[in-house]
Design a protein around this nucleic acid. Sequence first.
DNA 1: TCATGCAATTAAGTATGACTTTTACGTCAC
DNA 2: GTGACGTAAAAGTCATACTTAATTGCATGA
Lengths: 233, 233
Amino acid sequence: MEIQGQGLHARVLASLGPAITAGEYPPGTVLRTDELERRFEVSRTVIREAVRVLESMYLVASRRRVGVTVRPTDEWNVFDPQVIRWRLAGADRPRQLRSLTVLRSAVEPVAAGLAAGLATPDQCTELTRHALGMVATSRGQQLDTYLVHDMAFHRTVLNASGNEMFARLGDVVAEVLTGRTEHHVMFSDPDPAAVTLHVRVAEAIRERDAARAESLTREITVGAMAELDVLAP
Amino acid sequence: MEIQGQGLHARVLASLGPAITAGEYPPGTVLRTDELERRFEVSRTVIREAVRVLESMYLVASRRRVGVTVRPTDEWNVFDPQVIRWRLAGADRPRQLRSLTVLRSAVEPVAAGLAAGLATPDQCTELTRHALGMVATSRGQQLDTYLVHDMAFHRTVLNASGNEMFARLGDVVAEVLTGRTEHHVMFSDPDPAAVTLHVRVAEAIRERDAARAESLTREITVGAMAELDVLAP
DNA sequence: TCATGCAATTAAGTATGACTTTTACGTCAC
DNA sequence: GTGACGTAAAAGTCATACTTAATTGCATGA
């Protein structure tokens, strides 16, 4: 039994969600409510609420006289942060990591370009601070603090872009970055070239040079793509 | 009373969702379940299921002894297709349209670049077919069929990119395009330059020229951004 | 005066049983 | 074989009783 979850329905979700996204119940599988009731030892109410949420994520479809059927993979709402987290935590991790990295390579450069035109003085200093923080912690077993600066840097860029949808990707990017270090932590210091690029992006944004901010960020994402082949088999 | 919705909970959602996203209940507003029960004349069960879904969209948070409180706008899951639809249909439409168009300008060029390397022969012919369809219907009050080809073209590019997350944006892009013509329908024929660009993108992808596919698509999205100032005040 | 803790109250959360509605599936007539 | 029809299975809905957690406020003590 999982310890987590405020509310029983959350516990059921935390068990069913990962199982479905991991392919444990292949598309087409039917789950009957009363079966789930017994399996989780909770009431109908709880199961129904969990199913409703899974339904809103397009993971399952509930039909009368049939049951709760798992939907085909390509119908899942892969932008749902919860779904992303479940997939990152499960067997589908490499695939999800690839998707996200490609998405980053599309979004972040554009976000940086927009940020160059919109970043507030506060955001500019924050960017510089985190970039310098990355420089300072890029050598000698300080990956943890390095990571904090890295995540904060990217989040700030996305926020400064002025686009609510970009801003919302901050959490996801953070999870990708976290996962990255979790895997080769202590193995090697960060790529010095990448660190320098972050500093230069901060500069470009501060100087309101959109084109440069965009192309420098593109270089960063190219690096991230390259790393993938090492990390995600 | 809305006619739609299979299931009462869907009816409640279809009423509460748009209301919340339209700012009818400002962030911080508390809704009590028994109040909602009476308002919609449904049972507790139904309300709770609807609330659970809204919760999974980060539109509301349900806390004991307090009620269901509307969350701050910047916490909403703005990638949820349902939320997008609600916002496109409501007062927030201009803002949502801008966000989406910027997102398109980031994603579609990259998708086109990837598609150049991955598109199947079938997808290539489909692209050409729709591009030519756009040419054929670009003059003389045929915006409806023009739109069908336009949507199908972009969807095919996104699918051909091989990225599940890009592919999932097909629906959203379709809605943006639909909304566009809904507003100036019959007023003017599509921009001939844009039509030509689509043909050339199809060509570039067929010839596996990623760089050209990307930059041509970027031109298309620049056009879309320009249109925005006319459409979204 | 202020802090601390305890009890009352409130609203969400859960359980349960009875009932309704939809619909897949099998049967039977044609 | 095809179509109409009845049956049953499973989700959907409702009403009610009960549980749990947290906020509020009062009372107690430093």
